[in-house]
Amino acid sequence: MWRAEMRVTLKPGVLDPQGRAVRQKLANLGWTGVSDVRVGKFLELLLEAPDRAAAVALVEEMGRRLLANPVLEDFSFDLEER
């Protein structure tokens, strides 16, 4: 059993209306030194795979085909054996 932790983030340069609102709210609360906030997603996946290479290939494909939108988002992940 493998456990993957995936981060899905907006590509550099893609504007992030949510991040901008969060940055503004932080400033309202007194944290005026935050120059940028980007909001992403964090996913935990538990999966069966015969070995690490197979698990990496599976998670890669899941990221490409569903979990991230290739027009706007990048993804990266860590993998550990359970």
Binding site: V14, L15, D16, P17, Q18, A21, N69, V71, L72
Partner: peptide, 8 residues
């Protein structure tokens, strides 16, 4: 693709 509306 779509992002949230600029004014949220």
């Amino acid at each position: 693709a779509f992002l949230p509306n600029e004014n949220l």
